[in-house]
Simulated assay, not measured.
Amino acid sequence: MKTNTIKMAAILLASTALVAGCGKKKVEQLPPAAEGTDYGQTQTDPNAGAGQIVPGSQEDFLQQVGQFGDRILFETDRFNVDAEDQATLQRQAQWLARYPNTRIIVEGHADERGTRDYNLALGERRANSAKNYLTSIGVDASRIETVSYGKERPSALGSDEQAWAQNRRAVTVTVQ
């Protein structure tokens, strides 16, 4: 009995020393952005002055369509494109017409309510609604991909109507 207690104490002491030696490491470099996108990246033209926005980039897109012109919002459990959404998507289509080689991804999102599977399906319907409208006004469907994130990537944190309203969305992201 005494030897078992001594063995357990030795194992506990050794494991404590091992864990104590494992501290947090300082992150020196962040992982790269998702391949093929310039989402969240500031791109500059190497031949231009520092800080200039590259034509056809995500920053150019946001500058031309407005601060929140990259997204359309939806009512609870809905995926229909209303008149306000149509105006936003028309601005996006006009920008895309100026850059015919730029492709986009339309991300579908949902608020935190509902199951994961339900929200993934709803996000897919929202992304497809935006894509369908863009193609109906002349954007080539081969330039548009869709993806659903469901409730996994909220825009606003919180469990109230204000946060939920911001999270029920379809967001357009340029792809290089």
Rank of each mutant, 00 (worst) to 15 (best):
L12H: 11
K25P: 03
Q166W: 10
R116Y: 05
Q67D: 13
Q166E: 14
R143W: 04
E161Q: 10
T115R: 10
A141H: 11
D38M: 00
Q94E: 13
G69Q: 02
I104N: 07
W164A: 07
R169I: 11
S129E: 14
V139Y: 08
G36L: 04
G40F: 02
F74D: 00
L120C: 06
I144W: 10
A93K: 00
T146H: 05
R168I: 08
T44D: 05
S57E: 05
Q86P: 03
T5D: 15
R98A: 10
V81P: 02
Q67A: 07
N167Q: 10
Q64K: 06
T42A: 04
L134F: 03
V173N: 12
N128I: 02
L89P: 07
R91D: 13
E35C: 04
N132W: 01
G158I: 12
R153F: 14
I53K: 00
G49D: 05
T135W: 04
R143P: 13
T135F: 03
T16A: 12
I11A: 14
T16C: 11
L18T: 12
D117M: 06
G56L: 00
A48E: 09
E145M: 15
A170Q: 11
I11S: 15
L18C: 08
Q94S: 08
K2W: 15
A110R: 02
S155G: 12
A97C: 08
T76N: 14
T5I: 15
A110Q: 06
I6A: 14
D140C: 12
A17T: 12
D45C: 03
S57I: 00
T44S: 04
D117H: 06
L120V: 08
S159C: 11
P154A: 07
R71Q: 07
I11W: 14
D70Y: 01
R169T: 08
R71S: 05
D77M: 11
T102K: 04
Q41I: 01
E28I: 09
R143N: 10
I11L: 14
L12E: 09
I105A: 10
N80W: 06
T102F: 08
L73C: 03
L12Y: 12
I144G: 10
V147T: 15
L18Y: 10
T172D: 09
T44M: 02
D82L: 03
V81I: 12
E59G: 03
T37C: 09
A9R: 12
G123C: 07
A34D: 08
T42C: 04
V139C: 09
R143T: 07
A87F: 01
R113H: 09
Q90M: 00
L30N: 09
L30T: 05
I137R: 00
A10S: 15
L12F: 12
M1K: 15
P55N: 03
S155F: 15
A14K: 13
L134G: 01
L62A: 00
E107M: 06
A17Q: 07
R153D: 09
Q52S: 04
T146L: 01
E28T: 08
R153P: 07
D117G: 07
G114F: 04
Q162T: 06
A165Y: 03
D111H: 11
I72F: 00
A48D: 11
G21L: 04
G150A: 13
W95K: 02
A97K: 10
R98D: 05
